[in-house]
Every structure is written in structure tokens, then in C-alpha cells.
């Protein structure tokens, strides 16, 4: 690592997962434009490793766009330009030599609406390991599937019907399946884009508990419009408004003693 924290990308192959890293990602002056419209405006922040960082803010504030920058999902969208830099483990992920496809295999993502593949439960989880050649033998694959499903707290419920279609699961189960699918390829960061917005309160509670467990081994970024959820699950909270990062700090501070008026207004429900 050089002074600037930038690592030579030619050695990029797998993000580190060593325990002694404190800062997982450094975001500097990040701006995102759709055509001319500015969706994220000059955001800088550091993400700590093995912590949950929550992004809150009114809808349309750019929080989803922001986390989609971390696995370069915005690249798929035409006319979307990203400025500034994001360093993950010291790698500049927007460097032209970084293959965003390879990057995404290191940074998992869970979406707003559960989106299991219309295949069997087993195939859903096995897709990633197969794709990346992580497991080639049936036995290894079985182990990974079981392990991932267990970590996602789903194994007990589905162990007898692994070959049934995933579409038959309930919404909460589907979302946990998506989480299992994500951790099946052991990513270094998990991005969650309002993972509970389509779920009922009970399923939400299960997922939140799951997040609590996952943060022991993963760095998690979660977008939520549910402030209680942010307060419950996260260590750090970032408040976005109109594409700008208004305030970023310890969750406790944000919710009890925010620095900015806007933050206070939002968390007390004056607008949003």
C-alpha cells in the first residue's frame, strides 16, 4: 500500500478479508449523474469493516444509487456517469483495469424485492459457486449450499425441499434465500438495498436478526427508509438528502443528538 492508500490494481484478484483491517472502503468526492441529473453529489465517507452502516433519507435522495456504486451496478444503466473514487481494501474499483464483473463477485448485493431465480432452491444457492468455479465437485457444492442456507437461517425450513422451485417460498424466505445466495460466494462486503421493504414485520425481524449475525464476518451496507431499523441494526448511519450526504456518524449520535437541523427534521418525522 502506498501513501495514498491506492494499491496497484494489477494484483487485484480477490479482496482481502483479513481480520485486522479497520477501514474497508474509502469513498472520496463521489458524484453520480444520470444524463445531466445529479443523483449523488460529492459524497465522501469511510466504511468500517465488520460493521453495519445504514443509509437513511427520504426516497429519491440517492442512497440506493450510492450503494450501487460500490459494486458498480450503475454501470449497467446507460447514460450513468460516476465521478470521484471508491477504494475498497485499497483498490480503486473504478480504475479502468478493474473488471466490474470480477468486482461484483466480491461484493454481494441483496435487493429491495426478493429476486430468486425461477429455479430450485438448491440451484439458486449453487449458481454463484458454479459460476465462479468455487466448487466443482458435487460434495463441495452440497456443503456450500448447506452452509450458506444455514448462515441465512433458512436451512431448517427448506432442507427437505431443496429441489422445489424457489418461487414457492414466502417473501421472507425468498429474501433469506437471496441472502444465502449472496454469501454462497463469500463476498467481502454485502450491500442491502431496502431488504425488508417488501416483507411483513415478522419476516423483517428475522432478517434483522440475521444481519446481526452476519456482521461478525461481513461488512454490511444497508439502505433503509425505516429509521427504527437503522437504529436497531447499524453501528454507523449516513443521512442523505437530495443526493448530498448531510450527516454521517455513530448511529447513536445521529438518532439522539444530530449535528444538522435537516437530520433532526427527518428523524423526528417532520419530512421524508
Amino acid at each position: 500500500m502506498t501513501d495514498t492508500g491506492i494499491v496497484n490494481i494489477s494484483s487485484f484478484n480477490k479482496l482481502k478479508k483479513s481480520k485486522n483491517i479497520k477501514i474497508k472502503a474509502i469513498i472520496k468526492n463521489l458524484s453520480v449523474f444520470y444524463s445531466d441529473k445529479c443523483a449523488v453529489d460529492n459524497v465522501s465517507m469511510n466504511i468500517n469493516a465488520r460493521e453495519v452502516t445504514a443509509m437513511i433519507g427520504p426516497s429519491g435522495c440517492g442512497k440506493s444509487t450510492f450503494i450501487r456504486c460500490l459494486n458498480r451496478m450503475n454501470d449497467v444503466i446507460e447514460n450513468c456517469t460516476v465521478k470521484g473514487s471508491i477504494l475498497i481494501d485499497g483498490y480503486d474499483i473504478y480504475h479502468p483495469k478493474i473488471d466490474e464483473v470480477k468486482l461484483r463477485s466480491q461484493i454481494g448485493m441483496v435487493f429491495q424485492k426478493p429476486n430468486p431465480f425461477p429455479k430450485s432452491i438448491y440451484d439458486n444457492v449453487a449458481y454463484g459457486p458454479r459460476l465462479h468455479g468455487i466448487a466443482t465437485k458435487k460434495n463441495d457444492l452440497d456443503n456450500i449450499v448447506e452452509e450458506s442456507l444455514t448462515k441465512a437461517g433458512l436451512f431448517k425450513e427448506v432442507k427437505d425441499r431443496l429441489n422445489d422451485t424457489a418461487i414457492g417460498l414466502s417473501g421472507g424466505q425468498q429474501q433469506r434465500l437471496c441472502i444465502a445466495r449472496t454469501i454462497s460466494i463469500s463476498p467481502s462486503i454485502i450491500l442491502m438495498d431496502e431488504p425488508c421493504s417488501a416483507l411483513d414485520p415478522i419476516a423483517t425481524a428475522v432478517i434483522e436478526e440475521l444481519i446481526e449475525n452476519l456482521k461478525k464476518s461481513y461488512t454490511i451496507l444497508i439502505v433503509t427508509h425505516n429509521m427504527q431499523q437503522a437504529a436497531r441494526v447499524s453501528e454507523k448511519t449516513a443521512f442523505f438528502h437530495l443526493g448530498k450526504l448531510i450527516e454521517f456518524g455513530d448511529t447513536k449520535t445521529i438518532f439522539t443528538n444530530p449535528r444538522e437541523k435537516q437530520t433532526l427534521g427527518y428523524i423526528t418525522g417532520r419530512y421524508g
Binding site: 484478484n13 473488471d99 470480477k102 459460476l131 468455479g133 468455487i134
Partner: peptide, 9 residues
Amino acid sequence: KVSELHSTP
């Protein structure tokens, strides 16, 4: 250890 490769074999 295929995951070390950029592309699968």
C-alpha cells in the same frame, strides 16, 4: 483453486 483466476478455466 479456480477463484484465483480472473476467468474460469
